[in-house]
Structures are given as C-alpha cells and as structure tokens.
Simulated assay, not measured.
Amino acid sequence: MKEIPPTPESFGEIAAAADRLLTGLAGLDDADVAGPSLLPGWTRGHVLSHLARQVPALERLLAWARTGVETPQYAGREARDAEIEAGAHATAATLVAELRASAAHFQRSVEELPAPAWQATVRPFTGELCTPRRILVIRLRELELHHADLDIGYGFADIPDSARQIVLDDLLGYYAAAEHVPDFVLSDSEGALLGRFGTGGPVVSGAPAEVLAWLAGRTTGSALHSTAELPVLPPWL
C-alpha cells in the first residue's frame, strides 16, 4: 500500500500531473468531450467528471484526518456513480473549468493540512486503512491513468519517470496483497526485478510503461515478454 511523504516534491508531482492534463485538454470541444474514452462505457466527459468530483471526495478524507470525525469518501458506490453521471454531460468548457478549480483546491488542501493530520488513520473507498500520505498517491495515480484513458495523445510512455514509479509501486503493492494472483516474476526490460508473486511461474518483462499499462488493466500485455503463457491477473480495483 504505497504512501508518499507530504513534501514539496510530492506536492509538485501532483501539481505537474494536473498541469499536464489541463494542457492536454486545451482545444477540446463539446463533441470531443462527448466522444468515447478508452474506458468501456465512459465518455471523456465521464472521465473528466470523475476527476473533478474526486477532489471533494478525497478532501472528505482529509477532513477526517484533520478533525478525527469519521467522514467517508463516498456514501456508497451508487452515490459516487451518480455524481459522475450528473457531471458527465456538461460542456467542454464547464468540465475543464471544474477540473482546473478542483485541482487548485486539492493542492491548497494538502499543502495546508496540519502536520499532525498526516499521521492520522483514515479509510478510503477501497477499504484499506492508511494515512493521508496515501491520498497523495491516489490523486497522482488517478490523474496519470485517466489522462491516458482520455485518448487525447497522452500515453503511459508519456508519464514522467518519477510519477510513473510512484504509480507502478502502488499497483505492485496492490497485487502483492491481492488474492488469486497467479505465480509469476515481473521485471523491466533490463532485467531488474520489479516484483515476485507467489513462487515460481513465468518471468514477465517489459518497459515500465507497458508493465504499468498491463497491471492497470489498460492493455492485454501483448507488448510484454513472458517465458510462458502470460498470467491472467485478477481485476484491479
């Protein structure tokens, strides 16, 4: 379960990811936003609506850490999905403005969170107990993966190394703790070990961007090399 410290460098990673996304959205019109994303059943509007509405949800966890009063991220999956759907059909200008404002608000929220709150325990929607340091990882992960999901010319290979490593470490940690993960060894294209799951199994290797895309369920792993049949991973999230 990946966490990163609340440092200027960590805050900078999130701000830079948001800036890259907002830059990529320049010039998108209403037809572009209504078009399909790479996520089944979601338009680009759904992806943008999710990213904007994720901020108040994550800030509810920050409020929990700051006050000690349990404040769930969402009331439930139905409430989360309804929020996303409600905003998904707005104009491109509205969605981009919401995303810009929410990104700036999140940045202020984490940079102003009191030091003791960073040690508090909260529980995100996904169920794990963690400190707000994990919220930084979640936000960075969502910005980077969903930027690629928008299919606007930004792919996994475009994620800067430092940000990609944080997201990759997060997914590796997830699969290390998940059930029903087949046995295999994962390495990068240079042979450096990335993870060992179970005992034995094939050695799967590839460029970090391709490894990340596969672990995140965004590709079939066809660009990876495996010494035997490529393992079938259980669904992520």
Score class of each variant (00 low, 15 high):
2 K>S: 11
4 I>N: 04
4 I>F: 03
7 T>W: 11
15 A>D: 15
15 A>T: 14
25 L>I: 11
26 A>H: 00
28 L>D: 00
32 D>Y: 00
34 A>W: 02
37 S>T: 01
44 R>S: 01
44 R>D: 01
49 S>F: 01
61 L>V: 05
68 G>L: 05
76 G>W: 11
78 E>Q: 14
79 A>P: 09
80 R>M: 08
81 D>S: 07
81 D>E: 15
82 A>G: 04
89 H>L: 03
94 T>M: 11
98 E>R: 13
98 E>V: 01
99 L>D: 06
101 A>Y: 06
101 A>M: 07
102 S>A: 14
104 A>P: 00
106 F>M: 01
107 Q>D: 15
108 R>D: 08
114 P>M: 05
114 P>S: 03
118 W>G: 05
125 F>S: 13
126 T>M: 10
127 G>C: 06
140 L>V: 11
141 R>Q: 14
145 L>F: 07
145 L>Y: 05
149 D>V: 07
156 F>T: 01
159 I>R: 00
160 P>W: 02
162 S>E: 09
164 R>M: 10
170 D>P: 00
173 G>K: 08
173 G>S: 07
174 Y>L: 15
189 S>K: 08
190 E>W: 00
190 E>C: 04
192 A>C: 09
196 R>T: 13
200 G>Y: 06
202 P>T: 04
203 V>M: 03
207 A>K: 08
209 A>D: 09
220 T>D: 15
223 A>F: 02
227 T>A: 11
